[in-house]
Design a protein around this nucleic acid. Structure first.
Ligand SMILES: [Mn+2]
Ligand SMILES: [Mn+2]
Ligand SMILES: [Mn+2]
Ligand SMILES: [Mn+2]
Lengths: 220, 220
DNA sequence: AACATAAATTAGCCTTGTCTAAAATATATA
DNA sequence: TATATATTTTAGACAAGGCTAATTTATGTT
């Protein structure tokens, strides 16, 4: 049985290790809003529990057991976010904080019932994949919108680092997961993009926003 | 902001104070599975926070503020139990433990959205009233089945102290909230009751079970 | 009135998870 | 190569919330 703090540390490590990156003490502390010294203690504890492998001064890796536990947490977090948006009418910018609490409720039956109740969703409101009960996630061919060529047709697949202000900006511009756009122009000066939809007005996105949007190819 | 432990103590006090009873240290400890000495410390803390009035050696009362906070917790607990049974298909004997965790998730928006999603239910799966967002509960005219006279027609309104084994026993006998029975006979020897329904087989209940079932009058 | 008993409180200890400050280490730079 | 800097770890403190053991209090019984 893991404590809430242990779970949050595990999840932070897992998040930092995405796409081959490393997980360092300082970054974990920053994510959790604590100090590096506190993290060091917890890394040792989770290593003793067999969930992490901590090489002092060289960062931390997940063991198989740790990977499994982290994926279960991610699954719970994203299922709850989906529930809040799809069933309770929350905005996608209002769910993270609450899911951060709900993910720690421990009941396998609850998790699996919720999953079934929601129809086994494969992506959460931010486009992030939801691991199934075996930890398997749907793989996709996604890349940052910022790197797309003018003329490409793409579908918005996910928001990379979904902060509330970013999500609110996207709401205001009417941009959401699943929408299909054509990259119509890129400004050389600031890298901003102009997007066009089949119908509806065009949208202009700064390079900063475009870097946060992950897209997949869309056939015309 | 209350900690989980503070919330559980507050809820225990509230539960013990039902129908004019007193709340003593020992009973609180028993409910929470802790020791009286631990409870004393927490009572002092909650008194300092203005939620309880603790008269050492003479038990504890809720302040207005404490009453409000306790009712909010009861509301959350019972709404979650209702969600688990009505939406996720849990049995009424499987929800308490999970609701005991879920009730501590702090988000007013979550509570009120859930309430609305469930259609503002007034009673939980065990027949206990769910306070509305102002703390108001629906009043009913209920009494223990054990005290009913032979010949009375009654509707099962609630299970007084819903332990899992009791709920499972009721499941096996096919007895649930809302069902209407006639008290057909009482054995003088052990106080056991025979109940009859409009249709379906009769049920025999021990005096112990009958004492745990709360009923309201039903017109024939 | 004195005493026995149950309940409650107090005192002191422990674990968990955080912090600050000091020391150690790795790495970039002169 | 020597040193400066950023990062990490270690050491020591503290608050929260639990425990056991000792003490105090209320109350029922002789
Ligand atoms: Mn969390
Ligand atoms: Mn998400
Ligand atoms: Mn609880
Ligand atoms: Mn209930």
């Amino acid at each position: 049985m893991l404590t809430r703090s242990e779970e949050d540390h595990l999840k932070a490590v897992h998040a930092l290790l995405q796409d081959g990156a490393s997980a360092f003490t300082k970054d974990i502390a920053e994510r959790l809003g604590t100090k590096a010294s506190s993290v060091t203690v917890m890394l040792k504890k989770l290593t003793d529990k067999g969930l992490l492998k901590h090489e002092p001064y060289y960062g931390v890796k997940l063991t198989g057991k740790g990977q499994t536990a982290a994926l279960r947490l991610v699954r719970k977090h994203r299922l709850w976010e989906t529930f809040l948006v799809e069933r309770l009418g929350f905005g996608w910018d209002e769910v993270h904080e609450v899911a951060e609490q709900l993910e720690h409720v421990s009941s396998d039956k609850l998790t699996d019932s919720l999953d079934e109740y929601l129809g086994h969703p494969r992506f959460d409101p931010h486009g992030d994949p939801i691991p199934d009960r075996n930890g398997k996630v749907q793989s996709r061919n996604i890349k940052p919108l910022a790197g797309c060529l003018v003329g490409e047709r793409v579908r918005i697949a996910a928001v990379k680092d979904p902060s509330d202000p970013l999500l609110q900006l996207l709401d205001e511009k009417g941009i959401g997961i699943g929408m299909v756009f054509e990259v119509h122009a890129r400004q050389a000066f600031d890298g901003s993009l102009e997007l066009r939809r089949k119908q509806g007005p065009p949208s202009t996105l700064s390079a900063l926003v475009a870097a946060q949007l992950l897209v997949e190819p869309a056939r015309p």
